[in-house]
């Protein structure tokens, strides 16, 4: 199964890549690891005229701590994120997320930038990155702009990235009181994609009270869904099993999950509560 014919460019700098995107407009697609784009091209779900491969452009991969921000280059693979000492130590929920994407071979080639730019509603990273209040660096010939997760994920397979822009990095704030982070996923048994998932980022004071909560759901909408009811039910409370279970019960409020051949709406609602509780409990247990 071959993709339809296309032209291929591997520019050596971002400036050259911007020029190619300006020349080809919406006929061009940016290629990172190719683990979302190439399968879509083989199935003729998309047929770009030109691929602009970022692999030769220096500075787009790697993980670094920049003061109070963790910066992950767009070409950093899921394996690199999942096994990074910095990510494991600072944001274990993100390392856990990267480690359950696809399978070992997919994680070795698939990139964080490629995954979030594809914005599959059944993907893992958008959920966790929204819980972590990540922001996205979009570069073009006109300069850089930074977009928050809430604005980046627009709809099914749709992001804020304009045709002349390239996602170059993901920035995750590292507050002085570190959040306790986690990710819990019910994978489809065959594909491994999300049926439902939940990511939690909780800040807890010395007395054990939750001072801030971000709880985000995957698989229940076209974009990551903030479970604001669950967040409100946690904030200001001691994280007892009863409080966490009651907060999880709130998670299914206001969601309208799509039924599919594997999971009907009621099942997804129920699993949303179960996996939200697991995510909250796992985050709370990370002292």
């Amino acid at each position: 199964m071959h993709p339809a014919s296309f032209g291929y460019q591997a520019p050596g700098s971002l400036q050259e890549a911007f020029a190619l995107l300006q020349e080809h407009g919406e006929d061009a697609k940016v290629l990172a690891g190719g683990h979302s784009l190439l399968p879509a091209m083989k199935l003729r779900l998309t047929q770009p005229e030109v691929l602009v491969d970022l692999r030769r452009i220096p500075g787009l991969d790697g993980i670094r701590v920049d003061n109070d921000t963790l910066v992950i280059g767009a070409l950093t693979t899921h394996t690199e994120v999942g096994t990074s000492e910095d990510v494991r130590r600072l944001l274990p929920g993100l390392a856990d997320t990267a480690s359950v994407i696809g399978d070992l071979q997919v994680r070795n080639r698939g990139t964080m930038g490629g995954s979030v730019a594809h914005a599959d509603p059944a993907a893992d990273l958008p959920v966790t990155l929204t819980a972590l209040d990540a922001s996205f660096v979009l570069a073009s010939a006109a300069g850089e702009r930074i977009v928050t997760a809430d604005d980046f994920f627009v709809d099914f397979f749709t992001t804020a990235v304009e045709p002349d822009e390239i996602l170059t990095a993901i920035r995750i704030p590292l507050p002085s009181t570190p959040a306790r982070t986690s990710y819990a996923k019910l994978p489809h048994p065959a594909s491994g994609y999300v049926v439902v998932s939940a990511a939690a980022a909780l800040t807890v004071d010395e007395a054990g009270a939750c001072t801030g909560a971000r709880v985000v759901l995957g698989g229940v909408a076209g974009t990551p869904h903030r479970a604001t009811g669950a967040e409100a039910a946690l904030t200001g409370q001691a994280l007892t099993p009863e409080v966490m279970a009651a907060a999880a019960e709130q998670a299914a409020d206001g969601i309208d999950p799509h039924a599919d051949s594997y999971a009907d709406e009621d099942y997804k609602r129920h699993m949303t509560v179960v996996y939200t509780r697991r995510a909250i409990e796992a985050a709370a247990a990370r002292g």
């Binding site: 199964m1 291929y8 199935l43 080639r109």
Partner: peptide
């Protein structure tokens, strides 16, 4: 499978196991 699922096409690229049905030859330059 030719759809990145089955792993029969797994090879090592720069020491890492990857699915060679989901990589262009030009990417391996």
């Amino acid at each position: 499978c030719d759809t990145s699922q089955c792993g029969a096409c797994t090879v090592h690229v720069n020491g890492l196991a990857v699915k060679s049905c989901t990589m262009l030859a030009v990417q391996a330059d």
